Amino acid sequence: MSVHLECLSHTPLLGHFDPPAPVLEEVLSLQRAARDRIAAFDPELVVLFSPDHFNGFFYNVMPSFCIGTGAHAIGDFDSLAGTLNVPFDLATDCAAAVVNDGIDAAISHDMQVDHGTAYPLQHLIGALDKYPVIPVFINSVAKPLPTFKRARLLGEAVGRWAASTGKRVLLIGSGGLSHQPPVPEYASAPEQVRKSLDGAGYTLSPEDRAARTNRTIAAGKAFVQDRNSLHPLNPAWDNGFLDMLETQTYEQLDRVSNDLVSQVAGRSTHEVKAWLAAFAALSAFGPYRSSHRYYREIPEWIAGFGALSAKSLGA
């Protein structure tokens, strides 16, 4: 039994509106290095914690957590599209174990995922289907949001199950860090947008998909010109969060409210709960040591962009 962890920010704007060449190469280089580490580890199973951006989960049914026993990626923002290699029996067993452990996670036999899931598979592994992967969705944009404590307990439950498999397990957390792209809020959205958030956005037309892409690109360009056009990035919060992951003191987040995080770091910062769940899962294997920490503000991608790797000391 062994375990390896990689957490990585994702961005739909890669290739659409990039930072200066030295910064872009810095990010691409760190992703290649992580990809090499994963290839050397050669996982038998990947557990991927990730959010969604109103592309697969909507207000008609919005679980806090969902475990996919089958999944397909839609290819938004030119990310990889196609079927994920989800091991049905293992994923079903994982879901049952998590529920029996007191975490009310939903299941999906055909989870629709977007760039939040496809990005790490593309840039850390190179394909959607190279390794068996269990996708674990964490609601990060649709109020009411799960708390940090519940995300931690979800991760611990998944980790206990993963440790029991005896397999080489790769844990991935995708998302964050501080950012607030132009994702609509239901309470203030016009009627047509509410219809999309209620489920009409599940099958967007090519024209509507392109319009959504272009709006995000435009927001990135505007943010570079005026850092007040969107919620500011917060490197102090981001690095404090990374410190807690590295020192395994993240239970402090149990006392942090969702509203406070939205106020200080942006509404989409809740994607860091995917990182928290991944590290909590790693803790189920025993004490760990982190490495390869990276952080940079990248306004072109509307993100505090980070990466962090870790291994169990007993692995």
Rank of each mutant, 00 (worst) to 15 (best):
V3D: 11
H4G: 05
L8Q: 12
H10D: 06
T11N: 14
T11I: 05
L13H: 07
E26V: 01
S29W: 09
L30S: 13
R37P: 10
D42M: 00
P43K: 08
V46C: 02
S50R: 07
H53I: 03
S64M: 09
F65Q: 02
I67Y: 12
G70I: 05
G82P: 05
P87N: 12
A96Q: 06
A96D: 09
A97E: 03
A97K: 03
N100G: 12
D101M: 00
G102N: 12
D104N: 15
D104A: 13
A106Q: 11
I107F: 11
D110E: 14
M111I: 02
D114I: 04
Y119N: 09
P120C: 12
L121G: 10
G126R: 09
A127Q: 11
A127N: 13
P132N: 14
F137K: 03
I138R: 05
V141C: 09
P144H: 10
P146G: 08
T147C: 06
T147S: 14
A151M: 01
R152V: 02
L154N: 06
L154Q: 05
E156Y: 01
E156S: 09
E156H: 00
R160H: 06
R160W: 00
R160L: 09
A163L: 08
T165S: 08
R168D: 04
L170C: 13
I172L: 15
G173N: 07
G176Q: 01
G176V: 03
P184H: 13
E185G: 11
A187H: 15
S188I: 12
A189R: 12
E191V: 14
S196P: 04
G199P: 02
A200I: 01
A210N: 15
R212C: 09
A218H: 15
A218P: 05
A218F: 14
A219P: 07
K221H: 10
F223Q: 02
H231G: 13
N234I: 07
M244E: 06
E246Y: 02
E246P: 12
Q248M: 01
Y250T: 02
Q252A: 12
L253N: 03
R255P: 00
V256R: 08
L260W: 15
T269I: 01
H270Y: 09
A274N: 14
A278K: 07
A278F: 02
A280S: 09
P287V: 05
P299G: 04
W301D: 07
A303R: 00
G306A: 15
